[in-house]
């Protein structure tokens, strides 16, 4: 009997350890979902995020057989007092051809701000084919009080863009990242 109960206790211990391992594993899995989600979205482009690094334009054949209409929408997040607009609201481009669109920003306040623009393409699948060689959204954009600026964005549309997409929208949202940008500067200093 004593032996039996010892056995069952050590059996219990082993099983508990296995189950605790599952629990810890699943807690880790919740955090693993973050990079997994990112990779999944990058591969499929379903969350409409464009790449955050510059694409390199190699001379590719321009597809003159179809035109793609791209609309630009700008908005500022709640509590971000800048003026922000696209100089061109809508462009029609051939896939493979280089284009430039300028964005105008003005810090209308008496305070210095650092902004971060976050892009979003709709429909999301088009994001994979929107290749930017230069974009203000790759970096933080600081503006002193009252300062204004023209921010360029150069891009081409990949000719591989699915045929059924004739029109897409690129939206930029400006976020106020002054606090965290200063934090980084202070850490580096």
């Amino acid at each position: 009997m004593t032996e039996g109960s010892n056995n069952s206790q050590s059996n219990n211990g082993k099983l508990v350890l296995k189950l605790v391992a599952v629990v810890i594993g699943m807690f880790g899995f919740a955090f693993a979902l973050v990079p997994l989600y990112e990779v999944f979205c990058q591969v499929t482009g379903i969350n409409g995020k464009t790449s955050d690094t510059a694409a390199i334009y190699e001379s590719i054949e321009v597809d003159h057989s179809r035109m793609i209409t791209i609309e630009f929408i700008t908005r500022t997040n709640t509590g971000m007092p800048w003026e922000f607009k696209a100089q061109t609201r809508k462009v029609e481009v051939y896939p493979g051809e280089m284009n430039q669109v300028d964005f105008y920003v003005k810090n209308n306040t008496h305070k210095d701000y650092v902004a971060q623009a976050v892009p979003s393409v709709s429909p999301g699948t088009a994001a994979l084919y929107m290749n930017k060689t230069e974009c203000f959204c790759f970096n933080n954009q600081p503006l002193a009080a009252g300062e204004e600026a023209i921010m360029p964005m150069k891009f081409y549309v990949d000719p591989q863009l699915p045929k059924d997409i004739k029109f897409f929208t690129l939206q930029y949202t400006l976020y106020d990242v002054t606090a965290s940008a200063e934090g980084v500067a202070m850490n580096q200093g």
Binding site: F29, A30, L33
Partner: peptide, 10 residues
Amino acid sequence: IAVMPVLAGA
């Protein structure tokens, strides 16, 4: 045990 840890993560 499979999903409560995910809630804890969230």
